[in-house]
């Protein structure tokens, strides 16, 4: 189990930032991803592996019109 934006989320072997975003339907382009407090650049989403019990923050940067 991992945490995604403070809430529990099932973990599976081979999970990456990209696969997690796809699973969560986080399609918004303008986001910040931090895993255990570490910033993950967009170019690393495909290969950045998420480990069991990681704390993942996906900040959507939108504050409306």
């Amino acid at each position: 189990m991992i945490k995604v934006n403070t809430e529990p989320h099932p973990w599976y072997s081979g999970m990456t930032v990209r696969s997690l975003l796809d699973e969560k339907l986080f399609t918004f382009r303008h986001i910040i991803v931090r895993v255990n407090g570490e910033y993950v650049p967009e170019e690393e989403y495909e290969r950045f592996a998420i480990q069991d019990e990681d704390d993942v923050i996906v900040l959507h940067l939108m504050a409306g019109g």
Binding site: N5, L59, A63, G64, G65
Partner: peptide, 18 residues
């Protein structure tokens, strides 16, 4: 009108203001 505050992502998605 939403020109005062648009907090949906902060609240509903990011869970920054629980």
């Amino acid at each position: 009108q939403h020109d005062e505050a648009w907090l949906i992502f902060m609240d509903m998605v990011n869970k920054q203001i629980p």
